[in-house]
Design a protein around this nucleic acid. Structure first.
Length: 188
DNA sequence: AGGAAGATCTACT
DNA sequence: GTAGATCTTCCTA
């Protein structure tokens, strides 16, 4: 995925990321997972967005170049986002769930769980399985040799469902969560 | 100093 | 399935 893929409306990017594969290079190993659930967040007009109250140190990546990793913490969990927005706008896509592909044993160890469906079926779980922390904030995912990249999947046909965003207290009147309805690996 | 936050786990019915 | 405890930052007072 090159930078132009991320330089679009966050909702379009969130939808099109479904089925793509995240590859994490860690300790000489490759962990990977297919994206099965995402949510789109905007800038100052979105009360659920980290960028709602303007640019701060911790959210500055959202205001910068699309295609970079944006990580922040909620309730003690790091959540993985990819910056996505039109030129001069603000936004990001939260990666909410993955279907584990390569490196399942490594993920089981990090998660201390055996059930494959418990490895990455939620934004906090996925970060634990893939070793996502603040250290990755700002990293460019469009670089092929990066510690974390996104590549096109097999291109299988899949049915895309939508809903309101999960857990947000002040949502927009619009479906901004996208997920593969057939997948067993979504967060619910 | 105190509280909220895009979640998860555990221990119950 | 639901309730309550807990996790770690950053924001606001």
């Amino acid at each position: 995925m090159d930078r132009s893929f991320y330089t679009r409306d966050p909702a379009a990017v969130a939808r099109d990321l479904l089925g793509k594969v995240i590859v994490r290079r860690l300790e000489g190993e490759s962990l990977s997972g297919r994206i099965v659930e995402t949510e789109a967040y905007f800038g100052g007009l979105d009360p659920a967005s980290r960028a709602f109250r303007g640019r701060k140190n911790y959210n500055s990546v959202m205001f910068e170049q699309p295609g970079r990793i944006f990580v922040y913490m909620v309730h003690g969990w790091w959540l993985l986002n990819i910056v996505a927005h039109l030129q001069d706008e603000v936004g990001a896509v939260l990666i909410r769930a993955l279907e584990p592909l390569e490196g399942v044993e490594h993920m089981e160890r990090r998660r201390e769980k055996r059930d494959v469906r418990e490895l990455a079926s939620g934004p906090g779980k996925l970060s634990q399985a893939f070793a996502v922390t603040k250290a990755l904030n700002g990293l460019d995912v469009t670089q092929g040799d990066s510690e974390l990249t996104v590549v096109a999947g097999e291109g299988e046909p899949c049915t895309i469902s939508t809903s309101r965003r999960i857990g947000v207290t002040k949502d927009l009147p619009r479906d901004l969560r996208f997920y593969l309805g057939d997948s067993e690996f979504t967060s619910r």
